[in-house]
Design a protein around this nucleic acid. Structure first.
Lengths: 351, 351
DNA sequence: TTGAAAGCGCTAACAA
DNA sequence: TTGTTAGCGCTTTCAA
């Protein structure tokens, strides 16, 4: 490779290491100062004549010098790098989180190694090992999981670990999660405020903690508003449109029919809408609908567009970034933190 | 932090660097050999007595020694790390690619830095700079882009760069893309083989190269099959269900009506299905539909489930991984490579 | 104000 | 078979 490349400008012969990236030694040699002086100039520290400083900086710019973070890290015993292990294949939920987290850390000059383990413990183990080798400063574990997971490990002594959108069976760990129960409360309270009296809840599989929490929120609002929990108005199934369609059909074939449905996700909500329209019921006039996730592709394409609960995953990711930085700075954080959801009102529940 | 942690087992005092991670020096000291010997034992090289080798390995395991990749990289002048810059916010298309790429590289013990630039040149520049500092061995640029992008740069001398699902105005670069034209040919040929004679094409905005290529494929099949290009049967709009619904309505209000529609993506296809069903047309009996992307959420929820073209993005990502490895090994690769799509037949076009 | 040198953790060439 | 040492690129202390 080196042979076929054109010679570097000005006849200088850079180091061959790392694709010929110039080192501080090169800078020092060309600027005709010592390495120590060059370092001082480049790091804007210490006492140095303006002249020397300028000369060094000019040379550095000219030859395209970029300090080698590997060497810096080695010296500082900090890699300024973190690892993320995902078990969701970086899916729909993990993405916004990771994106915001990466953005937050990039602001501080930290970089992110991303690893996908897809729920395979062996791969998780292998990735973790690799990350430890890279001497990451912190580890973030994320996943779309039904329930608590086994804590990751064993890890380096004192390595900060944060579980986001995921929760570990470890009292010393920090978990960041959306407040599913609060989100459900927002949704159902909204429907109740609309004057709806017969509110049904169609949701996903109960082995998801989120399903249980949202149901809890649903029930608490009913109780508080003095609304009845009607037999057959709670339906647990799967996270699909097909289930939403089926569940809606079931609801409207019973002795009592709802005037509002709170759905466990947007796909279910959209399915429900389709069935209602086919039955000839008007949304929201006859039945108001609220979904969960605020997934643009679903809520906007549904007819009518869906009111939904937004889990504010980007905010969650950003906060995870903040926590990572705090923990790297030495603070010990632990416990489960649940962050508020928000209600986004659209036509499916417009008053 | 160090004070509050329990003392390490067996009263040993590990180094304080990198959170107290043991070094090869620790291993050597405890195993009572020289550092060189320890290194030889750990790297399974050189001549060494089995006894010494075993002793070193045992100690290493006991104290949880993991070589410091930073130091290794510094020495080897190879970071065994690559960077990915995405401009798609790691969206629906980028994800499977990145996932497969990461998986492929992880097999070779390489790690991946992920950076999201969301089409902001300043952030892209900043990320690139950071990655160069990390001395990545190669760079992958990915995006959901309408058209060719400006080549990334300036970069380190000789750094391999690969554009995936993205294309740069740089003849020396390697681009990996799905074969949009070929995918369209698959779709339309399938419809023609079903005996359909009046095939329409509803698609996205023409400033997407993919739209132009797919139209080209569509036309070539029509020409080859001796089918007419009927006035008003090509409709370019946006990538949404709403446009699919509208376009279908338009198609069926004209003087001539199609017996098949090839859609530029699955959302358009799904929208078209909805309109057809409302008009009272049977799919595929009256009108056969084929989508593009094979996006599970769409194709499975549509009624009927959609036949679609799969861009095989995971394969693309894996191949990108292979290319990265080749280029790191020194091979120069360049040019635009388009990889085949495949046809996935479902009810919307079942014979 | 500038230079010299030690050391971060590791590998590899050479010496013993 | 094992030990010693130089050096990867950088920062930092100490000396000049």
């Amino acid at each position: 490779m080196q042979e076929t490349d054109p010679p570097p400008p000005e006849g200088r012969v850079p180091n061959l290491a790392f694709g010929g990236a110039p080192t501080i030694r090169d800078v020092a040699r060309i600027a005709d100062v010592s390495i120590g002086t060059a370092s001082k100039a480049l790091n804007a520290g210490g006492r140095l004549s303006q002249e020397t400083r300028d000369k060094v900086l000019r040379v550095a710019r000219e030859i395209g010098y970029r300090p080698n973070d590997l060497a810096q890290s080695l010296h500082r015993a900090k890699s300024r790098t973190i690892g993320i292990i995902s078990n969701d294949s970086f899916g729909r939920f993990t993405f916004p989180i990771v994106e915001a987290l990466e953005e937050r850390l990039a602001e501080e000059g930290m970089a992110v190694f991303m690893c996908n383990a897809t729920d395979d413990p062996a791969r998780e183990r292998q990735h973790l090992d690799q990350l430890l080798g890279k001497r990451i400063d912190a580890l973030v574990v994320t996943a779309r999981r039904a329930d608590k997971r086994a804590p990751i490990g064993p890890l380096a002594h004192g390595l900060p670990v944060i579980y986001v959108f995921s929760q570990a069976d470890d009292p010393n760990a920090l978990s960041l999660l959306p407040d599913d129960e609060g989100g459900a409360v927002l949704a159902v309270a909204h429907l109740a405020a609309l004057g709806r009296k017969r509110i049904a809840h169609v949701t996903g599989p109960e082995h998801f903690e989120a399903v249980r929490l949202r149901r809890k929120g649903y029930r608490s609002v009913l109780a508080e508003a003095g609304l009845p929990e009607i037999e057959g108005f709670y339906l647990s199934g799967v996270w699909s449109e097909a289930w939403g369609r089926e569940a809606a059909a079931r609801l409207f074939s019973g002795p009592q029919t709802p005037d509002a449905i709170f759905c466990g996700n947007d796909q279910i909500a959209r399915g429900a809408c389709d069935t209602l329209r086919e039955i000839g019921l008007a949304i929201p006039a006859d039945v108001a609908i609220v979904g969960f996730d605020n997934w643009d592709v679903m809520v906007l394409a549904a007819r009518p567009p869906l009111t939904s609960i937004d889990m504010n995953l980007k905010a969650l990711g950003r906060e995870a970034g903040d926590s990572v930085l705090e923990m790297i700075a030495g603070r010990k954080l632990s416990g489960v933190r649940r962050r508020p959801c928000s209600l986004v009102v659209r036509a499916s529940s417009k008053p």
